[in-house]
Design a protein around this nucleic acid. Structure first.
Length: 243
DNA sequence: GCGACAG
DNA sequence: ATCTTGTCGC
């Protein structure tokens, strides 16, 4: 693999990396009951598909106000392959995390954790690499069987892969489509569910994710125009910084 | 072999 | 992910 970014050079290699790293996932830690800060991570892509912007926003868990943020711009590091999705965004997300001036108590990722074919989705990967508690919140399922949870906010049902419970289908708002919550690292499924509900007082998706989504689109727009101004570079990316 | 398939 | 118009509802 590429020594600098740690990005695999083939699908087979990427799968091997996941098989190797998954043993490092902490499935015991219940995680913080009352995190002081929670980080949201998201990535925006340019239509051209050769540019992406990752954003990390740190929110005060109690007020949900943004207290820190950082972005990382670059090119997708890997093709889009369901199950290997993390390798695409990981370099940019880690760059953004590095530029943070705060150390968040919890990572809320846009994608799955254990609800993954090899039990090592993006949330697990980010948790293992950073050592931070992490959970995954997906908008659509990747694997597993489930039945719709009750219609009211707070209702949930199990997301299972055969006999294994790999996550929960959680209704974050009355009557809206549910989200798929799974453990990433150092968190219990109960706590992950509680944290997601605490982050969704008014919308379907966590405030952390919404904040990161805005920042990433924002950074992408700025990066696109900056690139145009320079007359279509063919750089490998690496732009970005704190705000 | 035929679909399904996080973002 | 991104491309897209209007529309129903708080």
């Amino acid at each position: 693999m590429d020594r600098d970014s740690g990005t695999p050079r083939s699908v087979a290699e990427a799968m091997a990396v996941q098989e190797e790293l998954r043993s490092r996932v902490d499935l015991v830690g219940p995680g913080p009951a009352e995190p002081a800060t929670v980080a949201g991570l998201d990535v925006a892509y340019a239509e051209s598909g050769d540019l992406l912007a990752a954003a990390v926003t740190v929110l005060d868990a109690r007020t949900l106000a943004v207290v820190d943020e950082a972005v990382g711009v670059g090119r997708p590091a890997f093709g889009y392959v369901p199950g290997l999705f993390a390798f695409r965004e990981l370099p940019a997300l880690l760059a953004a995390l590095d530029r943070l001036s705060t150390r968040p108590d919890l990572l809320v990722c846009d994608g799955h954790g254990l609800a993954h074919p090899r039990r090592f989705g993006l949330a697990c990967h980010l948790g293992v690499v950073t050592g931070l508690p992490a959970i995954g919140v997906g908008k659509t399922p990747l694997i597993g069987e489930w039945t719709p949870p009750g219609e009211l906010r707070g209702a949930w049902s199990e997301l299972r892969d055969g006999d294994e419970v790999v996550g929960r289908v959680v209704r974050t708002r009355d009557g809206v489509k549910p989200v798929f919550v799974s453990v990433g690292h150092r968190m219990s499924l109960d706590n992950a569910t509680a944290q997601v509900l605490a982050l969704t007082p008014r919308h379907r998706l966590p405030e952390t994710t919404r904040a990161a989504d805005r920042r990433s689109r924002d950074a992408l727009a700025r990066a696109s125009s900056a690139r145009d101004d320079l007359g279509e570079d063919r750089g490998q990316g690496g732009v970005g910084g704190r705000r």
